[in-house]
Simulated scan of single mutants.
Amino acid sequence: MQLLDIPFNDARRRYLVFHPWHMPDRLHLASTTTTQEFEQHASSRFYVSDDQTVLAKVVPDKFDKRHHPFQWFGRDYLEKRWLLQTDARKEFLSLRILRKAGLQTPTCHGWGVSLNPRNRNASLLLMEYLPTARPGGEYFDALDEAGKHRFLERFVGEVVQLAKAGFVHRDLHYNNLLVTASDDIVWIDAHVRTLPRNTDAKWQALSRSLTVNKLRGETYRRYAEQRLREQWSHTSQATS
């Protein structure tokens, strides 16, 4: 655990950082054109360290304390700050689950919380920055039809791999992934939940995780579900 004063652009914010690992001697974070692209696909804010090694994901308070003081005090101040139930902590734990399941994730440099009620950005996740990797949605859109089907085959394979570990992703879409120059899939946004124990309920949870909007249309959702059914069936038979 480490208390850090971190400059963000021109503002300095203090965070209590848990599990700090391989942190730069001096951490200065700033917005870039790349982080602005990340923000187009998420409600979080992103910053990159000066040495281009650390990506910071900052999640603001859900409620405005001036307009919704009671909700802010209960949810954003007590629950997230003092009970440490921040998005960053949950995502840090989910990334560990993904990695334990054998999926590739960025290296985590720790997660932090700001106890200062004047700092709306209480949640901080610090992870490895991969500047040459492409957002999954951009990568998918640039593929031809055969390439999209090959990508979906790999994508579904990793969904099954996570399911074999007992979990399903709660927000399964391409922009929760990066694709490296060597075509490796890296999971960068991790929110998972435990699969139910019942076999039929497991399949329903996996099937519902594939949606039309997030997979770029019914054609791709249907193909992904078909491949998911086949791969999950093989897995179920092997473990029965």
Results as ranks from 00 to 15, higher is better:
221 R>F: 01
190 A>D: 04
136 G>W: 01
172 L>S: 09
222 R>S: 15
31 S>H: 09
100 K>Y: 13
78 L>E: 10
234 H>I: 08
231 Q>L: 13
88 A>R: 05
118 R>H: 12
105 T>M: 11
139 Y>T: 01
173 H>A: 10
53 T>S: 09
159 V>G: 12
148 K>Y: 00
194 T>E: 12
199 T>S: 15
123 S>C: 11
236 S>A: 15
237 Q>L: 11
109 H>N: 10
240 S>K: 12
48 V>K: 12
222 R>K: 12
141 D>G: 03
217 G>K: 14
196 P>W: 07
194 T>G: 07
80 K>V: 05
34 T>N: 04
202 K>P: 00
213 N>F: 08
122 A>L: 06
209 S>F: 02
101 A>W: 03
200 D>I: 05
187 W>P: 01
187 W>S: 07
189 D>V: 04
102 G>T: 11
9 N>C: 01
192 V>G: 07
176 N>P: 01
160 V>N: 09
50 D>W: 04
148 K>W: 00
72 W>Y: 10
219 T>K: 14
115 L>S: 13
88 A>E: 02
85 Q>Y: 03
128 E>L: 04
37 E>P: 00
147 G>D: 01
217 G>S: 12
104 Q>M: 08
217 G>Q: 13
24 P>L: 08
124 L>K: 04
178 L>D: 08
113 V>E: 02
147 G>K: 09
122 A>H: 11
138 E>A: 14
12 R>W: 07
60 P>C: 00
15 Y>C: 01
63 F>T: 03
150 R>L: 07
80 K>C: 13
132 T>N: 06
156 V>N: 07
143 L>G: 02
132 T>E: 07
230 E>M: 12
214 K>E: 15
82 W>D: 09
208 R>Y: 06
173 H>N: 13
93 L>N: 05
191 H>T: 09
81 R>I: 01
49 S>R: 03
213 N>C: 05
10 D>L: 10
228 L>H: 07
145 E>C: 00
159 V>D: 13
101 A>R: 11
10 D>W: 06
147 G>V: 00
97 I>E: 04
77 Y>K: 05
149 H>S: 10
129 Y>F: 11
28 H>W: 11
195 L>S: 14
4 L>M: 07
11 A>L: 13
2 Q>Y: 03
27 L>I: 01
135 P>E: 13
160 V>C: 10
173 H>S: 13
165 A>Q: 11
18 F>T: 11
190 A>F: 03
208 R>A: 11
84 L>I: 00
87 D>L: 07
155 F>S: 14
208 R>Q: 08
232 W>S: 11
77 Y>C: 09
141 D>K: 14
95 L>Q: 13
168 V>H: 10
199 T>D: 14
224 A>F: 00
12 R>K: 14
132 T>H: 06
68 H>G: 05
120 R>Y: 08
157 G>E: 02
196 P>K: 15
32 T>G: 02
57 K>T: 06
165 A>K: 08
126 L>G: 09
230 E>I: 04
59 V>C: 02
234 H>S: 14
85 Q>W: 02
143 L>A: 04
225 E>G: 08
201 A>W: 03
118 R>W: 13
205 A>V: 02
78 L>Q: 12
207 S>P: 02
107 T>Q: 14
10 D>A: 14
6 I>T: 00
123 S>N: 15
118 R>F: 12
29 L>W: 00
140 F>P: 00
20 P>D: 07
175 N>C: 10
45 R>E: 06
37 E>M: 10
166 G>N: 07
19 H>K: 05
75 R>M: 03
229 R>V: 04
64 D>F: 05
